[in-house]
Simulated scan of single mutants.
Amino acid sequence: MSKSNEMIRLASQRGYTVNKDGEVLNPKGEKVMGSIRKTKKYFYKTIGITYFGMSRPILVHRFVAYKKFGEAALEGECIRHLNDNSLDNRPDNIDIGTYREIFNTTKNKISV
């Protein structure tokens, strides 16, 4: 299992949750401030979870998917943002998908 998936499980076990706006809440119910990580084409929100004295990053959309779908989210090929906005982490905008689905959605939007 990847370190990222371990951190997602650990955060959930420690009582971190997600609100309807896709914001991560700590066990006290306070919003967790994070940062933005840029990949080649997209920006993603991340939070840090302390593990053995070190902060480990978690992608917020993956944590939201875990809270929504459970273990299936960790086994899925990828996590999709249904509206293609990589910073919109609302649970109703997150789904488990495949890279082929993302490719087809993007291709269809370009050709229209």
Score class of each variant (00 low, 15 high):
residue 60 V to N: 02
residue 75 E to N: 14
residue 81 H to V: 03
residue 91 P to H: 05
residue 62 R to H: 10
residue 89 N to I: 07
residue 83 N to C: 04
residue 70 G to F: 05
residue 74 L to K: 10
residue 97 G to I: 01
residue 66 Y to H: 05
residue 57 P to H: 07
residue 53 G to F: 05
residue 54 M to R: 15
residue 77 E to Q: 12
residue 71 E to C: 04
residue 77 E to G: 04
residue 79 I to L: 04
residue 72 A to Q: 15
residue 102 I to F: 09
residue 59 L to H: 11
residue 71 E to K: 10
residue 71 E to P: 05
residue 92 D to S: 10
residue 60 V to A: 00
residue 79 I to H: 04
residue 74 L to G: 04
residue 72 A to N: 13
residue 91 P to Q: 03
residue 70 G to A: 06
residue 85 N to K: 13
residue 84 D to R: 13
residue 68 K to G: 02
residue 86 S to D: 12
residue 91 P to W: 05
residue 102 I to K: 12
residue 52 F to H: 15
residue 62 R to F: 04
residue 54 M to N: 15
residue 56 R to T: 12
residue 55 S to L: 14
residue 102 I to L: 09
residue 89 N to F: 03
residue 77 E to C: 02
residue 73 A to R: 01
residue 74 L to A: 06
residue 71 E to T: 12
residue 65 A to Y: 07
residue 64 V to N: 00
residue 82 L to R: 14
residue 92 D to Q: 12
residue 54 M to G: 14
residue 63 F to K: 01
residue 90 R to P: 01
residue 102 I to N: 12
residue 60 V to H: 06
residue 88 D to L: 01
residue 54 M to C: 14
residue 67 K to C: 08
residue 55 S to W: 15
residue 71 E to A: 07
residue 66 Y to N: 00
residue 64 V to T: 04
residue 69 F to H: 08
residue 88 D to M: 08
residue 76 G to Q: 12
residue 82 L to P: 07
residue 56 R to L: 12
residue 96 I to Y: 03
residue 91 P to M: 03
residue 70 G to Y: 09
residue 85 N to W: 11
residue 58 I to T: 05
residue 77 E to V: 06
residue 85 N to Y: 10
residue 87 L to V: 10
residue 89 N to W: 06
residue 81 H to T: 06
residue 61 H to I: 08
residue 79 I to Y: 01
residue 100 R to M: 15
residue 66 Y to I: 01
residue 95 D to M: 14
residue 83 N to P: 04
